[in-house]
């Protein structure tokens, strides 16, 4: 299976993780850009929350479900790491997206 295929698959099995973590990313990206002095704190919060959400995802994941995906040729490491990596890329993208927007807002205030 190609890396693209694995990423597409992770959107399916990791949707709960990506949604929960995406909400945190959105809040962190908006607040971090509006208040640059606490941006580092939001980045740390984001990383810590990702770990907690992943822990909950692993704990409450239906017991046999991982084998549906392992049978398709992804490894256990990829099963857990790809959604985390995707989430961090999305967070980074949101930070970049909201940077000009917040600058505009701050200049208007």
């Amino acid at each position: 299976m190609t890396l693209f295929g694995k990423i597409a698959l992770s959107f399916r099995y990791g949707s709960e993780y990506l949604i929960a973590s995406g909400v945190v990313s959105l809040i962190a990206a908006i607040n971090g850009n509006l208040h640059p002095e606490v941006l580092f704190g939001w980045k740390v919060t984001k990383v810590l929350s990702s770990l907690i959400i992943m822990y909950l995802f692993v704990t409450f994941d239906r017991k046999g479900r991982i084998y549906f995906y392992l049978n398709l040729g992804i490894s256990r490491l990829e099963y857990y790491l790809i959604p985390v990596a995707l989430d961090l890329v999305i967070f980074w993208g949101l930070l970049l997206l909201f940077a000009p927007l917040s600058k505009l807002l701050l200049s208007m205030m």
């Binding site: 299976m1 399916r12 099995y13 239906r62 017991k63 046999g64 479900r65 991982i66 084998y67 549906f68 995906y69 392992l70 049978n71 398709l72 040729g73 992804i74 490894s75 256990r76 490491l77 990829e78």
Partner: peptide
């Protein structure tokens, strides 16, 4: 070992097809 699922398929005791 990591991608053995491509060659060996496993049916666990628990239901494994996503709900």
């Amino acid at each position: 070992y990591g991608h053995i699922g491509l060659r060996v398929k496993y049916m666990p005791q628990e239901h494994f097809i996503p709900r």
